[in-house]
Amino acid sequence: MSGQMREPMLKISGVHTFYGSIEALKGVDMEVSAGEIVTLIGANGAGKSTLLMTICGNPRAKSGSVHFEGEDITRVPTFEIVRRGIAQSPEGRRIFGRMTVLENLQMGSITAQPGSFSRELERVYTLFPRLKERQAQRGGTLSGGEQQMLAIGRALMSQPRLLLLDEPSLGLAPLIVKQIFKVIEDINREQKMTVFLVEQNAFHALKLAHRGYVMVNGNITLQGTGRELLANEEVRTAYLEGGH
């Protein structure tokens, strides 16, 4: 896929991002092509989430550029970026706690084409039958796994072409993590959804992803296919030691 001369869907080049005077991203280059699952792994504080947020323009890149489907979106307002087809399931899930599951999903479709709601809802409920059972329940009363499903489902409701997932496995039981990753794989295979996944759970993420990047202190230090990275000695000692 990467061998083709086609323009990648998402192209990040030389991005520097600052929090005040602290440089969180020190010139990041990476690409995501249409139809891929790409994962970004790294330790706490490496700048993974910052990169994801920078794609959405909050915080903005101080220098460098972000291109989505050939257009420069580096300076485009955040809400406009979402409207162009990038949906995000934010870190910590950020469910609307007092609103019901159904209302949460409805919020997701606020930028979608009118009339798409029931079709997309059906699709999300097929992916997560659990959400259908709980649709009249308030988001805050769901379990952690269900909330994660809701966060992903909510992001899918906007009919994105690129799905950004920030640590979907955070704080979940291994069995649930497996379930969630299975769904991500399904979304990618059946709906041809391009997925950019930021993860600490390197083993699962690399097994799932077509390609991966490793981030250390705001720099991309390694890249390769998921399989290559899984076999890489450095990656093994730094992120995979001590089991899965």
């Binding site: 809400f79 406009e80 934010p90 950020r94 609307f96 992001a155």
Partner: peptide, 10 residues
């Protein structure tokens, strides 16, 4: 409920 989530939904 959550204005950051709102921004991420466009």
């Amino acid at each position: 409920e959550d204005d950051i989530a709102c921004t991420s939904l466009g």
